[in-house]
Write a protein that binds this DNA or RNA. Structure first.
Length: 594
RNA sequence: GGUUCCGUAGCUCAGUUGGAUAGAGCAACAGCCUUCUAAGCUGUGGGUCGCGCGUUCGAAUCGCGCCGGAAUCACCA
């Protein structure tokens, strides 16, 4: 990396000129701002004191030293405390020659180590996926790919929350009002069907409360004693007792939901190496809690409920087992953590879970530590922000959730409409066109969501948010398609592209594209360190924009100078490749034509 | 009330370990399709980086205090 060389050279300069040792990491190298001449800039201010000279003088003598002692610096200038260094074009040309034909340029070599286990998605089985899940799924998939690109082995896992009162609610409502409705005979997607009865439950529950209140029963009591709620609780108890009928119904409805989820996952392009079911893991959690109780790490109250006392850690007491012996969310998570650690010998267990659960994961880690499990420290909560709507937070009860399937379909429709308006599909077969709409729609959706810093809450306006112009997925896809089209038209053989570029003189725009390409491996590294697909997204947008600016008024195929033509073709090909790689890390496909 | 996070252009967002005149996209306005795909390019306008104080050669970035918003502190998951 050129900036590291420059930093080391600066260290040597400071040592020689001012007889002072400076750590290379403390040297500040940055890209030169556009308005000034130069490629990289050394910040001089830190040396002013030890040099006992003005910033200008200081920059001047360091600049002279750098130029005299390197073969890649062709000039420099000093503005205030900033030393702008001009890098030899040959350096960038060499970079192009060395990397332009590497398929996975920017990806780092595989490391032989224990895997990163990434949990994401983690749906409940009582309702379909919504916009919040989309952000989760896209982040999980993308972070996994970015980790892989950094050489880490990755296992993607999903933890399905398939048991509990929520699914019983759907079951009760289906028993009462379903009339034998199934996905087959209703044409409804399984998850939507089950979700429909979850809503039915809520309606009936509210009505029953109302009825009770009108009979002068206090609101609070009514909420606890509504018959349909009691039915659901009874069903949960039967479930825990392995009641055959309840289990059969539970399995039937859950399978409807899984079939529905699979369709959505497939359309989103996400997948998993292993799926865990809470119904299979909660008992392990229970046993861990009882074990901790026996060892005196946890404590039991007179009502027999079991608690962890975390007050020494600045937190509260946390319930782990109810008085009736049933488990809670935390209990189950203790079990899955252990199971997962043992399944994969994980180096790291990452949980892609919303920031509303930050507290939960703090508590989880502390309890595991208290219970002396060595894997407590491998847990990493990759916390992401909420997706908000213009009218505020999504609330399923108020019907303001944006359904994942509906949203995707709406995007596909928009993509079709937009494409037809532009008259792009005249020579497309209909099947090909359909595929393109899907590609563009998902490109737009994924990019829109992933370009935002994961840790921040984001706003999604269903009617206005998704655009196909500007800083969007389709813009980058379009840039890629144009490059592919250009390369297809070029009559220069691949062999020619494989040959080494001769020294040519490049213009500012070409150089700027080349400099951006040069940064890609660093961006991948950084995105991996910060678990942030947004860095990739912002980078490929910058690259596509810079490329378009070059592409607009610099002829490639029409260039008569053979060397220059080859150089530009190589630049196009390389840019196309990096755009494709970047899009891939976001789960977005790069169409050949559009 | 305690804890955590957030506040940058009309809107949506970037802004690396503190660095130069705070940047994009959308929206608005003005240009560019007989020329490699106009889902594009070029230009114009738009800012008290929530407010104040402090640290520093230098602060959107660090510290403290306010103001405003969100999440969480559940025998929901």
């Amino acid at each position: 990396m050129i900036d590291k060389h420059l930093a080391e050279l600066t260290v040597a300069a400071v040592k020689e000129l001012f007889q002072t040792e400076v750590a290379s990491a403390n040297i500040q190298i940055q890209k030169t701002v556009k308005d000034f001449e130069g490629d990289l800039t050394v910040v001089i201010f830190p040396f002013v004191k030890i040099a006992r000279k003005s910033p200008e003088q200081c920059g001047e003598i360091i600049g002279q030293y750098l130029q005299a002692n390197s073969n890649f610096i062709t000039g420099f200038n000093v503005v205030k405390g900033f030393l702008n260094v001009v890098i030899d074009e040959q350096y960038y040309l060499d970079f192009l020659n060395e990397n332009k034909n590497i398929n996975n340029f920017g990806y780092h070599a595989a490391i032989a180590e224990k895997p990163f286990v990434v949990e994401y998605s983690s749906p409940n089985t009582n309702k379909p996926l919504h916009l919040g899940h989309i952000r989760n799924n896209l982040l999980g998939w993308s972070v996994s790919e970015i980790l892989k690109a950094n050489g880490h082995p990755v296992k993607k896992v999903n933890l399905v929350n398939d048991r509990g009162i929520h699914i019983c609610k759907s079951m009760v409502a289906w028993m009462r009002y379903g009339n034998g409705e199934t996905p087959e005979n209703s044409g409804l997607k399984g998850d939507h069907l089950v979700g429909k009865y979850y809503v039915e439950f809520d309606k009936a529950y509210k009505q029953e409360i109302k009825d009770l209140v009108s009979k002068n029963i206090p609101q609070e009591q009514a909420e606890k004693e509504a018959p349909i709620l009691l039915e659901a609780q009874e069903m949960l108890r039967k479930w825990e007792q392995n009641d055959a009928d309840v289990r059969a119904l539970w399995e039937k409805m859950n399978n409807w939901v899984y079939a529905g989820f699979d369709v959505t996952y497939k359309r989103l392009g996400v997948d998993f190496d292993k799926i865990y079911y809470e119904s299979n893991t909660y008992l392990l959690g229970k046993s861990m809690v009882l074990d901790g109780l026996q060892k005196g790490i946890l404590n039991q109250r007179p009502d027999t409920s079991v608690w962890a006392d975390l007050r020494e850690d600045g937190l509260d007491e946390k319930l782990l087992l109810r008085a009736d012996g049933t488990s809670v969310y935390m209990t189950q998570d203790l079990g899955t953590a252990k199971l997962r650690y043992e399944d994969f010998e994980a180096q790291k267990m990452m949980y892609i879970v919303g920031n509303e659960q930050n507290y939960h994961f703090d508590v989880l880690k502390i309890i595991l530590k208290k219970l002396n499990y060595p894997f407590a420290d491998t847990i990493e909560h990759v916390s992401y922000g909420m997706v908000e709507l213009p009218e505020g937070k999504m609330k399923s009860r108020e019907g303001t959730v944006v359904d994942a399937d509906d949203l995707i379909q709406e995007m596909v429709n928009t993509a079709r409409q937009k494409t037809e308006e532009l008259g792009k599909i005249d020579n497309f077969e209909s099947e090909e066109a359909q595929k393109l709409y899907e590609t563009l729609a998902l490109g737009a959706l994924k990019y829109f969501i992933l370009k935002v810093d994961p840790t921040k809450n984001m706003l999604f306006n269903p009617h206005e948010s998704i655009d196909f112009n500007g800083n969007t997925g389709p813009f980058i896809q379009y840039t890629h398609a144009r490059i592919r089209s250009l390369l297809n038209k070029s009559d220069i053989e691949t062999e020619v592209l494989n040959t080494k570029m001769q020294a040519i003189s490049m213009n500012e725009k070409e150089k700027s594209v080349l400099k951006l390409l040069h940064d890609f491996p660093q961006i991948v590294r950084q995105a991996g360190d910060l678990y942030s697909p947004a860095l990739i997204a912002n980078y490929i947008f910058e690259l596509a924009k810079e490329f378009n600016s070059f592409y607009q008024d610099t002829p490639v195929l029409r260039e008569e100078n053979e060397e220059l033509r080859k150089f530009r073709l190589a630049l196009c090909a390389f840019t196309g490749q990096v755009l494709k790689s970047g899009l891939h890390l976001l789960g977005i496909s790069a169409p050949e034509k559009m």
